[in-house]
Nucleic acid binder design. Structure first.
Lengths: 133, 133
DNA sequence: CAGGAAGTTTACGTAAACGTAAAGTAAATA
DNA sequence: TATTTACTTTACGTTTACGTAAACTTCCTG
């Protein structure tokens, strides 16, 4: 294999990503500062690849879920973690289990709010009917 | 009806609530400061009733969902809102619709993360098997 | 009646997640 | 070659959601 594999090497500038995800470049650099992104450099300039882009997407998804950047960082560690030792693996599985419990709680919470909102909505609708007829 | 209806008047002190929900009294006073709670007073002392207790529960549920206190406050306004005018009602229903969209997005996000966590978990399990056999 | 225990207000401190200049570099373009 | 455009670092400012401490009142108890 003397040929370096540069196939499908898609690169992004910081403004590419800022436009794609509708966030400021400040935010993107901040995420790097917090260790969530690690773009390569060409001179001074940051070069982002596909992996960085995916990570950014995950960061924003985490934010929508109310995860702190630190929590999202821990999730990244889970993705990337060293899976060589049984000890590491069991620690990981505990963390995963905790996160899953957390998410299940959120599912419950969301469903509860959705039910309440639907109730209010239906109430509004029926009142509107009495007002317009 | 000359009898004042004081049946089922359950009261709570600030420390009652702080213990029940495992939060500090500082937080509870802070929520009041932000207009999310409005306990009555007996002298200086705050007296919370059932409604306040429910509200506090909702505040904490909102927090778990990543709602800011301001957002939770807006939800409270929806619950309590004046439903007399058709205009008000249609505005409300728009806000409800927005919130529902927001929550549906969160449901999708959570399900996505859950799927990924399950993948990692299964991966861990199978590796653990190869390590222990 | 001294001394907790539980409540209060006031106010400064803090962590997270950026916003917002300021001041400089580097490449592309008129 | 001058300048616009896109990038960079440094650094102070801001909002949210409290933590923490000080100083005070009120009530109960040994």
């Amino acid at each position: 294999m003397t040929l370096t594999n540069k196939v499908s090497q898609i690169n992004y500038s910081i403004s590419d990503l800022s436009k794609e995800f509708d966030i400021t470049t400040r935010s993107i650099r901040f995420y790097e500062d917090k260790g969530l992104l690690a773009p390569t450099r060409k001179g001074q300039t940051r070069i982002y690849n596909q992996r960085d882009q995916v990570r950014l997407k995950l960061i924003l998804r985490g934010k929508r879920l109310g995860f702190s950047l630190a929590e999202t960082g821990r999730l990244f560690e889970l993705y990337d973690a060293d899976k060589s030792s049984a000890k590491q693996l069991t620690i990981m599985m505990e963390l995963i289990s905790e996160k899953k419990d957390d998410l299940k709680q959120k599912l419950e919470d969301i469903n509860a709010v959705l039910i309440e909102l639907n109730d209010i909505e239906n109430n509004c609708k029926s009142i509107l009917k009495t007002l317009t007829t």
